[in-house]
């Protein structure tokens, strides 16, 4: 599962994309919903947990926390940006 990163999430991760394994060889729970994905990423990048409004898009549409995700989905993390 590939995740596109925007705004400050790109700075936090240090890259514009991130790969999340869809089958677990490590015993870690594989995220099945948007909420689980946020938790999964927050464990690796705790700075992400600080973002109070983080939009997640699944296949180019805004997704609520409960939405199911699978390995074919195109996912993006889109925090608000403020520069002008």
């Amino acid at each position: 599962m590939t995740i596109l990163l925007f705004g400050i999430t790109k700075d936090i991760v240090g890259s514009s994309t991130l790969s999340v394994p869809t089958s677990s060889a490590t015993g870690r729970k594989v995220p099945k919903t948007v909420k689980e994905l946020k938790q999964f990423l927050g464990e690796t990048y705790p700075e992400l947990n600080k973002l109070s409004s983080l939009a997640v898009a699944v296949n180019n549409n805004y997704a609520e926390d409960g939405e199911l995700i699978n390995s074919y989905d195109e996912i993006a993390l889109i925090p608000p940006v403020s520069g002008g």
Binding site: K50, L51, S52, S53
Partner: peptide, 17 residues
């Protein structure tokens, strides 16, 4: 899209970023 305003210390502004 963004229900809650981010707190000042969670986001940089233009001067810092």
């Amino acid at each position: 899209l963004y229900p809650n305003m981010p707190s000042p210390d969670e986001m940089p502004n233009c001067n810092e970023n």
